[in-house]
Simulated scan of single mutants.
Amino acid sequence: MHKTALVPHAHLPRAHHDCHVLASTVDVSGAAHWLLAERAPQPGGDVLPFDALVVSVHPGGTVELTELSAVRARWPHLDRLPDGGFVVAASRTRRYEDADQVQVFDTLGRETSSFSVGDAIEHLLVDGAGHVWVGHFDENPAGIRRWSATGRLVWTSDGAPIPGLFDCYALNVSGTAAWACPYTDFPLVELRPDRPVRVWANRVRGARAVAVHGERVAFYGGYGEERDRLAHAELTETSVEPTDVGVLTLHDGPLPGRRRVVGRGSRIYVQAEPFTTWEVFDLSS
């Protein structure tokens, strides 16, 4: 089985390595962001809210710092809005926190609004129009939904012809479109707000990230020994046809181990522990 090496993309500046990484992501423009706190959260013992720092590294290496006031999410998701603000969301909700689950911050780090998108967030990704795509895991039957940055539901997978949508294993957001590969049947699904949902039958099981470029697709991850699998495939009219299978490694050779993944168009971004560096696989290259 051949190996494909990731390419270095962005690094958290060393001056911030003593902080705890609460969340990290790569936005739709390719900028990397880290949400930092002075220490790791303590289950049931933290005093909320707390102040946090977002360190952003833009393509080309420019670093930007944004201090966020009164963050309420103990186990957060993070992404950036096109206007320079940020969205921070708690992956789990408790009854008394539900209305404040998602916080929207302006470019000065001040909260401007809050709303709820529902419990059990697996993925939260902002698209190029500033809408928030949320994919849920199996403790919430909501599936996949798209929200405005003010909390208005603008698209839902309810009623869409997506077989076996119990857990949004993989979600890719680029431009205003999204691609998903949900458990249990793992179809490849194209979601565009202005078009009907398209679905391709798929035999690649358990992928945690997907990249799409024209008629080509790559799936990353899987079960057990296929955890680091990189499966290439081509789209036909109705199905995904595998063409090649290999392994995705870090740029210097080892397998990633514990990692975060983000899908953006033709790219899959991977961040391995200790979560200070993002690396990238680009299907288009």
Rank of each mutant, 00 (worst) to 15 (best):
T243M: 02
D194I: 11
E226F: 07
L124C: 00
E241K: 11
V154T: 09
H232T: 06
V26E: 01
L250P: 00
E241S: 11
G128N: 09
V57S: 01
R216E: 12
T176P: 12
Q42D: 15
R39P: 10
E273C: 14
L22Q: 11
P59L: 04
P193I: 04
P13N: 10
W179R: 04
V217R: 00
G164C: 04
G135S: 01
R146V: 04
R229G: 08
H123D: 05
V262F: 09
S91D: 15
S56Q: 09
L65H: 13
P187G: 06
R229Y: 09
E241H: 12
L22K: 09
A180G: 02
W200E: 02
P43W: 10
A207Y: 01
L248I: 06
Q101N: 07
T156P: 08
D106C: 07
Q271E: 12
A99L: 13
C19N: 15
S24C: 09
A70E: 11
Q42H: 14
H136I: 01
R14E: 15
P41M: 00
H9T: 05
G221F: 02
S91T: 15
P242Y: 06
L65F: 13
V104L: 05
D167L: 07
A180P: 01
A180L: 06
E111V: 11
D244A: 13
Y96P: 15
H131L: 14
P196D: 06
